[in-house]
């Protein structure tokens, strides 16, 4: 672990990415407390104003303060984006690794299940899942956390398949390499073989998938709320803010620029962190 960190620290861009992400997270946590303007107050006399000292990020068409909304909604967007993708990666790596490592019947079964999941029509499936489980999960976890879990579960559950295919493809090539065969003949356990010898050599595409996935999940979350499946309409997640801004692109571009920029900065910093992490994990570069 210490090795990984030492290697990671050497990567300048990765450290910068880490810094930017830390700043974003910190402002989401502390920002709403420091910045006293409420984000949900409607005031039509202040509608669609550009950035000013009073409203740093300007206001939207209802006169709500955009910075307060970015800070408030960002907690949800970021939490959803990261957790949903973590779930997708966890499922994808697990299934892909087992299929690729074991091969044979297990591989066939797992990959055909993957085919099935890929083929399912997402939109009707979402409607069905929400219809079947929303009230049940709300009863267990409460209305807010219930929706949060449901959104993560849904986004994670719909995004693991490409990861599984990628990991399996990586395993198929790596597992035949000389050093794996050597480790195997030395009696390494399957877990150790997967974890120490094969996975680090197949992790590159997975990290890319995770990086891009976070950005995607932030947008997907907003798509869910347009279907009435996500958070209530007065929760200003980044994706929703971007969507709401689209009709005002020519009259009030600031409504789009700020949420767009934070999404981009998040994705970019995660990308550099991922890049650095990949190098740090890769046994060959150590």
């Amino acid at each position: 672990m210490g090795d990984v960190w030492r290697q990671f620290r050497r990567d300048k861009m990765a450290v910068v990415g880490m810094g930017v992400l830390a700043i974003i997270i910190l402002s989401l946590l502390v920002g709403p407390l420091v910045y006293g303007v409420p984000g949900d107050e409607i005031d039509f006399t202040q509608a669609s104003l550009g950035p000013s000292w009073q409203h740093w990020f300007g206001t939207n068409d209802l006169g709500q303060d955009q910075l307060a909304r970015v800070l408030w909604g960002g907690r949800i967007s970021l939490a959803v984006g990261v957790s949903a993708i973590a779930l997708a990666i966890f499922l994808g790596v697990g299934i892909g690794a087992v299929a690729g490592f074991c091969g044979g019947v297990i591989d066939t079964i797992l990959m055909r299940i993957t085919d099935l999941c890929l083929a399912l029509p997402q939109l009707p499936l979402l409607l069905l899942v929400v219809y079947l489980f929303r009230d049940a999960i709300k009863a267990v976890a409460g209305p807010e956390w219930g929706i949060f879990y449901l959104v993560i579960f849904v986004i994670g559950g719909l995004n693991w398949m490409p990861v599984a295919r990628l990991v399996r493809a990586g395993f198929l090539t790596v597992r035949q390499m000389d050093y794996v065969a050597a480790a195997r003949s030395l009696g390494a356990s399957p877990m150790r073989l997967i974890w120490v010898h094969i996975l680090p050599n197949a992790i590159g595409p997975v990290i890319v998938a995770a990086t891009l996935g976070v950005g995607n999940a932030i947008i997907t979350e907003s798509t869910l709320s347009f279907l009435g499946l996500g958070f209530p309409p007065d929760v200003p997640t980044w994706g929703r803010m971007l969507y709401e801004a689209k009709d005002y692109l020519d009259s009030a571009p600031h409504m789009a620029i700020f949420p767009g920029t934070v999404i981009f900065l998040t994705v970019l910093s995660i990308n550099y962190i991922g890049d650095g992490l990949r190098d740090a994990i890769d046994p060959k570069t150590r």
């Binding site: 949900d40 209802l62 009435g228």
Partner: peptide, 16 residues
């Protein structure tokens, strides 16, 4: 209500 931008804004105004 149904998903529709104007309705969502109406909802928010009434909520306030």
């Amino acid at each position: 209500t149904s998903v529709n931008p104007v309705r969502q804004k109406t909802q928010q105004i009434i909520k306030q």
